[in-house]
């Protein structure tokens, strides 16, 4: 099950590993995405901390860690094909995976239903 942050990231935890990305709504709002700045593998982030950025033709936007954790994998495919983010932001367009996740932070995130409500959908 996915959880959503006010800052338009999603996170899904499977076997203790959290996969993180930006929401379809965010990708749509940003327009054509042209570059993804990835965190370094092994980097540790607090919940709410900037861990990377996505760039569209017009602007760059920070992305925030929805939960505290340590980066254990990045989605290399986005380096050559950032347009995957526009096609499947909540699927193949995942950005990175975190281990050592502090799951207590989930209580501060939203369900999909609440997130969609928050963006007026």
């Amino acid at each position: 099950m996915k959880y959503y942050a006010e800052t338009h990231e999603w996170v899904e935890i499977v076997d203790g590993i959290a996969t993180v990305g930006i929401t379809e709504f965010a990708a749509e709002e940003l327009g054509d995405l042209t570059y993804v700045e990835m965190p370094a593998i092994g980097a540790v982030f607090a919940a709410g901390e900037v861990f990377g950025s996505v760039e569209s033709v017009k602007a760059a936007s920070d992305i925030y860690a929805p939960l505290a954790g340590k980066v254990c994998e990045i989605n290399d495919a986005l380096e050559t094909n950032p347009e995957v983010l526009n096609e499947a932001a909540e699927g193949d367009g995942w950005i990175c995976r975190f281990s050592d996740v502090d799951q207590s932070g989930l209580s501060k995130l939203m369900s999909r239903e609440d997130y969609l409500k928050s963006i007026g959908k």
């Binding site: 327009g31 054509d32 042209t34 033709v57 017009k58 347009e83 526009n86």
Partner: peptide, 10 residues
């Protein structure tokens, strides 16, 4: 209009 439905790159 900044872009139409196909997007800036297209």
């Amino acid at each position: 209009p900044v872009q139409y439905s196909e997007g800036i790159l297209a």
